[in-house]
Design a protein around this nucleic acid. Structure first.
Lengths: 217, 217
DNA sequence: CCTTTAATTCTTGTATACAAAAATCTTGAC
DNA sequence: GTCAAGATTTTTGTATACAAGAATTAAAGG
């Protein structure tokens, strides 16, 4: 693994965090000079980081004007979650006939750790294990390109999924759905896995209200 | 529409073309200085363009070493086409219940122009109309995020789809599949549309041999 | 007092300069 | 002749300098 990171990449990551954590409002201009000062570097690596932000969709660039924060609105979020649901469904469909026994065991073990985290009220662990559960399915597709695309979207939606999972009763229900997904994969039933994953990820019913509510917090 | 392009973006596009058109072999280092000279600019916009190439997957960056061309091999291509097939299937599923009457008419009109292009042996037009046919389905999802993702992948695979469609008998068969897809969308049958699109895009059977063969041409 | 226009300031985009790391070449020992 | 270690050259990554376009302010006219 190439864990080496150039400074620009590190700055880009930090900037993403800043944009996520609400330090910036939608439409804010990302001032190169101020950012350079606050990171104690020159404008060059800042500009590199800004470009990355733009290309990954967190910001928008207007030539000769600057880079502006683009936080997704309710409609954007719905669209992104719907897309995620479809991609997860595709992963399930493919993984059903390809995932290895080790992969299936890993899914069960991860679910167990998820359950334990819920019992302990340990949200951080739950989030991490939940993420890993889905990543294991991506891996199960035996399609590294699709796996990477799925991870990219998962990462992009991460901050919003957290706000969703906070709500009462959501975690146990989510776990029940995980069981269903694993069962479908064990049976090699691609269509069932696809359906279960699509419904699991999709934002519908009360989840919709919750997502909207979380935006005005 | 913001049609304004900064120089770096234009250079990035040109570089993509160069990488596509086979001017570079897999693994070639993209020399900043030489590129700067050949484009008659400084290294700064070149580096900007290289970053874009890396982030869109056409090249790989190794810190302190440089940027290297990464042409997809047979396995990468299979993975990408499989992913495209799944995404198109998802688009079909969603579009079946959302596409407008205008959209459906547009699909039929595009198919007609496709047929005419085949009759005329006009490949360029056929390629363009075929592309537009699929984009109309993306649009039909009424999900601009998914639409953008689909277009991104379509664009990435464009040069390889062309080599595929060259083969004898492929174009008429492809047209028949288009008819099937439109029919499914007209009936609002999401699952049928998904299946038809998945099979239409998927690389299977003899198409596989052809794709492999095209790589050694 | 408001509007318009010219001058000034700021900001981005590009070029150049410099430092540190990697690659290459040279030299010497075996 | 081969290999290794050190010196030299290249190349990347970052900082700084400069030019051109955008934003802002100031001034003048109605």
């Amino acid at each position: 693994m190439e864990t080496e990171l150039t400074r620009g990449e590190k700055i880009a990551e930090t900037l993403e965090q800043l944009v996520f954590s609400g330090d910036y409002k939608d439409g804010d201009r990302l001032d190169e000079i101020k950012l350079a000062e606050s990171f104690a570097v020159s404008r060059t690596p800042i500009r590199e980081a800004l470009q990355r932000l733009v290309l990954s969709g967190f910001a928008e660039q207007i030539p000769r004007r600057g880079v502006f924060v683009r936080l997704p609105g309710p409609v954007d979020l719905m669209e992104m979650f719907e897309t995620m649901a479809e991609i997860e469904a595709a992963c399930g469909r493919l993984a059903a006939s390809r995932i290895s026994d080790e992969g299936l065991e890993l899914l069960e073990a991860t679910n167990t750790r998820c359950q334990e985290a819920i019992a302990r009220q340990d949200r951080e662990t739950y989030y991490a294990e939940n993420e890993f559960f889905h990543q294991t399915i991506y891996r199960g597709t035996a399609n590294s390109f699709l796996e990477k695309e799925a991870r990219r979207l998962q990462n992009r939606l991460k901050p919003y999924r957290r706000t969703q999972l906070r709500f009462r009763g959501r975690m146990p229900q989510s776990m029940a759905e995980h069981e269903q997904i694993v069962a479908a994969l064990q049976n090699g039933d691609g269509e069932a896995a696809a359906r279960a994953l699509r419904d699991h990820v999709a934002v519908q019913g009360e989840k919709f209200q919750q997502l909207i509510a979380s935006l005005n917090g």
